[in-house]
Amino acid sequence: MPESTIAEKLIKLRYMHNLEREEFAEQLNFHWDTVEGWELHNIMPKPQNIKKLCEFYNVSLEFFHIYYKIYFDNPEEKIKAWKEKNNYTYEDLMDMLGVSHSAVARLMNGKIKIGL
């Protein structure tokens, strides 16, 4: 079975455990139509739901996409450490990242997470 999309990977994971959509949803305390949206309508699961799936079925975050590994690996903290190590200002980061001053400030204060 191909698995190039999150939906295809979810279906594969469900099939690997011989579960119907409703059973799969019930095991994880999701509503069946949530899972249906992910599988049939390519609605992207929230990162926290992907993490829950990975923990429950003992699969790596990378199974779904490298983005999820990065998301849960505190990239904001690494950017802060990199900023401090190199004595960069917010203006330096604005130029390097191509974002506004307020976006840099929210990133440094943990108000936003990095998205890909």
Rank of each mutant, 00 (worst) to 15 (best):
K69N: 09
M16E: 09
S102H: 13
P47E: 10
G37Y: 09
I43S: 00
R21G: 03
S100N: 14
P75Q: 10
D73Y: 08
E84A: 02
D33F: 12
V59L: 08
K9A: 05
C54A: 15
E8R: 14
N58T: 02
K46R: 11
A103M: 14
K83M: 09
N18V: 05
K52Q: 14
D33P: 00
N86W: 04
V59S: 12
H17K: 08
L53C: 11
K12I: 03
N58A: 15
D73M: 06
E77W: 04
E62M: 07
E23A: 10
C54Y: 04
M108W: 00
N86S: 12
T34W: 04
N29M: 01
Y15C: 10
M96I: 13
I11M: 06
H65V: 04
N109V: 01
L107F: 11
T5D: 03
L61N: 01
L53T: 02
Y68S: 06
F72Y: 07
I79P: 07
H65L: 03
Y88G: 00
K52P: 15
C54D: 05
L28M: 12
L97A: 07
A25T: 08
E62T: 15
V104H: 06
R14Y: 01
T5Y: 05
K85I: 05
Y57D: 01
K80F: 03
E26L: 05
L19Y: 01
M108C: 03
P75E: 06
M96S: 08
M44E: 05
E3M: 12
M96T: 08
M96R: 15
A7C: 05
I70H: 07
D95Q: 15
N86L: 14
D73H: 09
E3V: 11
C54W: 02
L97S: 08
L10F: 01
Y67C: 02
N86D: 08
K9M: 06
L97R: 14
I11T: 12
R106Q: 11
K78R: 08
N18K: 06
Y90W: 04
L107P: 11
A105Q: 15
H65I: 01
A25V: 04
N58F: 14
N74Q: 09
E22G: 01
L13C: 10
E39H: 03
R106E: 06
I70T: 14
Y57K: 02
A105F: 14
S4H: 06
S60Q: 12
K78N: 05
H65N: 15
L13E: 04
P2Q: 08
A103D: 10
C54Q: 05
E62Q: 10
I66A: 06
K12A: 09
I43W: 00
H17S: 12
M44F: 03
K78I: 09
K69M: 09
N42A: 13
D95S: 10
T5M: 01
E26S: 13
L28C: 07
L13F: 05
I66K: 06
L93C: 07
I50H: 07
H65R: 10
Y88Q: 08
I50C: 02
L28Y: 01
E62R: 09
E3L: 13
M16P: 00
W82I: 02
N74P: 00
N74E: 12
